[in-house]
């Protein structure tokens, strides 16, 4: 009996809630968006492939804009995707690859190396933020970190153009300025998105690996020199 009472205790609070008799406690649970959603799915089946791809690209582009103007919106967090990060990562790795096209010179970053640094770095940062008590989901964090590489990818493109046109100290100074600015931008943007999900007293601990991650990538971009 005592055990039974013990078991029923969790619901003791509920027993106080009285439901008046004239309200029927039964019925169908209807989801209002169900009907329209079905229509949507039907329409995606029928629509041309071009539209589907364009819509996805628009979503990715929309998130790029969010990174460029890192205002505290949850769009990047709410519907995450990994297409953008993949695109950015591959672009960056391909741009950095040119330096090591010569098989004898292994000092330059290789495609696989860049790829591994970006993905494993993001995973480690995500795990770290989860360990520190962050409330963000795994893929949301990966998405944010991946999208925030964009300033560095842009910096890489600029660096290649600069390397084509001018050389010497001027080139290095320009590249240093560009890479520093984009590194700061990346760190700032990712912090703006990730900071809300962290306990307020531990933001510094979460930001440090992010800083290190973008610093390594930025440093790789800065030290890149195409093979002659």
């Amino acid at each position: 009996m005592a055990a039974a009472e013990e078991a029923s205790r969790p619901f003791a609070g509920l027993s106080d809630v009285s439901i008046s008799d004239d309200i029927p406690v039964e019925g169908d649970i209807s989801v209002p968006v169900g009907a329209s959603r079905r229509d949507d799915e039907l329409s995606t089946l029928d629509e041309p492939v071009k539209e589907t791809i364009l819509r996805d690209l628009r979503a990715v582009g929309n998130k790029f804009v969010h990174v460029l103007y890192p205002k505290r919106s949850s769009a990047l967090l709410r519907d995450w995707d990994l297409w953008g990060p993949l695109l950015l990562c591959v672009t960056l790795a391909l741009l950095l690859q040119g330096g090591a096209a010569d098989s004898d010179d292994q000092g330059g970053p290789q495609f696989a190396e860049v790829f591994v640094i970006i993905w494993f770095g993001s995973i480690i940062i995500t795990l770290n933020s989860k360990l520190l008590g962050g409330t963000i989901s795994f893929f949301q964090s990966l998405c944010v970190l991946g999208y925030c590489i964009m300033p560095l990818t842009v910096a890489m493109a600029v660096c290649r153009i600069v390397l084509l046109s001018v050389s010497g100290t001027v080139s290095f100074a320009v590249r240093l300025a560009v890479v520093t600015a984009s590194f700061g931008w990346s760190t700032f943007a990712s912090t703006a998105f990730l900071a809300d999900s962290q306990p307020p007293n531990r933001k510094a601990l979460v930001v440090y690996p992010v800083f290190l991650f973008y610093f390594v990538i930025g440093w790789m971009v800065l030290t890149f020199s195409p093979s002659q």
Binding site: L127, L132, A204
Partner: peptide
């Protein structure tokens, strides 16, 4: 992660 969490229970000041 929950198993490891106690080992990461630090404040920036402590670090």
């Amino acid at each position: 992660i929950d198993i490891l969490r106690p080992y990461f229970d630090v404040e920036p000041v402590q670090v």
